[in-house]
Amino acid sequence: MAVKVLFLGPLSDLFDTAEMSLPAPLSWGQLLEAVPRTVAEQLQGERIHVACQGHVLPDKTALVALDGQEIALLPPVSGG
């Protein structure tokens, strides 16, 4: 029973990995506890969004991911 967590863009550089697997079910608090403190601080910022199963959550703190689901951690996008 696991949840796949994807770290996109600069978050993967900060964490030094693009993905990890965590036990299901997974809450927002459990996610923050599972990553290094520096990553957890970034994730709590207003500009980081969370998608579960391809849908961006309006309130990332309400995250509850079940077995087999995929979570994507989305940093701000810039471009020109």
Rank of each mutant, 00 (worst) to 15 (best):
L11C: 12
G45L: 13
E41L: 15
P76Y: 09
L22W: 06
D59S: 04
T38D: 13
F15H: 11
L22N: 02
D67A: 15
G79Y: 06
V5M: 07
L14W: 04
L11V: 11
S78N: 08
C52G: 08
V5Q: 09
P10M: 12
D67I: 05
L22R: 10
G45T: 15
S12T: 14
A51Q: 05
L57Y: 01
A40P: 00
L63D: 06
K4V: 00
Q69T: 03
V3S: 14
A72W: 03
V64N: 03
A24V: 04
G29Y: 02
Q42C: 11
R37L: 04
A18H: 09
V50M: 09
T38S: 14
L26P: 11
P36F: 04
Q69I: 00
G54S: 09
V35M: 01
G68Y: 11
V35Y: 05
Q53G: 12
E33T: 04
P23T: 09
L63C: 14
D13L: 15
E33Q: 06
V64Y: 05
G9S: 14
W28V: 02
L57N: 10
L66Q: 15
L63T: 12
V3M: 09
Q53C: 02
L74C: 07
V5P: 07
H55N: 02
L11I: 09
M20Q: 01
L43I: 12
V3W: 03
P36H: 01
G29C: 10
S21M: 09
G68H: 10
G45N: 10
V77T: 13
L43Y: 11
L74V: 14
L6K: 14
F7K: 04
G54R: 06
D59I: 01
V5T: 02
M1Y: 10
Q53I: 00
T17H: 00
A34V: 01
A2L: 06
Q69W: 11
F15A: 14
Q44Y: 08
G9W: 14
